[in-house]
Design a protein around this nucleic acid. Structure first.
Lengths: 192, 192
DNA sequence: GTCTATAAGAGGATAGAC
DNA sequence: GTCTATCCTCTTATAGAC
């Protein structure tokens, strides 16, 4: 339907502006101006600015959560699960580079109950990531490593990946997956 | 003097609030409330909200620039220079964790000419970092590596380090330096 | 579904008393 | 150096015409 299409335009435009200037510094007029309409027209498609943020953030967070579910329920080795996780991040980042920016900063502006929903999804995700990393370290005979610092380092790079993707729009997803896996895991594990 | 002291309190309080909620979402009333005074009183010590942002950001950026100058003018090997750079980041992050948060997000709200000053300082810094990394790779016989992706990965971790420091306030600087150097460089170079 | 007009409030900043 | 009072602008959101 036309409405659903318009809604997508609003969400995409808002995501781009939120990424560039932040949620608070972006006005409804700014968003409307992207679609060359007036601000009040937006309210025929969405309840308000907060709803835009919630849809963008929670839908993307759910993609990560469900991707994690598939991986942790698989029969892959821990190290293979790590590779799959990196692929998940690369793919979602290429699909939603603007949304990824919100995930790292504008989530603080979520109102309840969306805020608590987001934080608990994020915490559960990072805990599951941590468990897989611990498993991989054990299988590799590296129990002395500072797991949390390694996790922190990997997640930091994955969080910033959207800036890389935005700077290199012609990027090949498969190539980027390969390079990221090499970059993030080859220093940690003894790989072929 | 009392004034200079008050000014420092304002800058520290503002940095903390900017880090937590962002520059735009923090009001002058919020900052004043931290010091238990009223908003107009702030203007006896600073010109306005924008000046606070500029002082916080440009002073920290200058610390990085001058730290880089010392390192690149040294007679250390490239790999030793890399170690020194990581120490520089760790030390400045422990000293100014709130300021580091602004460096990664709120710089977009700088007005001219501060904006251009900041961007060119940042670009020159990253270029110098890149040159040192290239030199280290060459000395290590690794010319096939994707330098820019390695640089991106290292800088991403260093940028997020302030969250680690804020979560671990009792942290030992020397220990953290050691772990960060190991974490960031041992995967890339053949180290003892 | 988009518009104009407007309500209701928050924000940065200044004037002037003390 | 801090206060109260206030100005002016911007912001989110609604009402109601077309």
């Amino acid at each position: 339907m036309a409405d659903s299409n318009r809604k997508k335009q609003i969400l995409n435009g808002a995501a781009r502006l939120f990424r560039k200037r932040g949620f608070t510094a972006t006005s409804m007029r700014d968003i409307a101006s992207e679609l060359q309409i007036e601000a009040p027209s937006l309210y025929n498609h969405i309840k308000g600015k907060q709803e835009i943020l919630q849809i963008l953030l929670l839908e993307l967070a759910r993609s990560f959560t469900s991707g994690m579910e598939v991986i942790r329920n698989s029969t892959l080795t821990y190290e293979e699960q790590l590779e799959k996780l990196i692929r998940l991040h690369v793919d979602l980042t290429i699909k939603h580079p603007n949304g990824m920016a919100l995930l790292t900063s504008d989530w603080v502006h979520l109102e309840e109950p969306a805020f608590s929903q987001y934080v608990s999804m994020r915490d559960e995700y990072e805990l599951a990531f941590r468990n897989i990393l611990i498993g991989a370290f054990k299988n590799d005979g590296k129990e002395s490593v500072n797991v949390d610092l390694a996790l922190f380092s990997i997640l930091s790079t994955l969080r910033w990946l959207y800036t890389w993707v935005l700077k290199n729009p012609e990027i090949n997803p498969v190539e980027l997956e390969k390079e990221m896996i090499e970059n993030l895991l080859s220093g940690i594990f003894n790989r072929s």
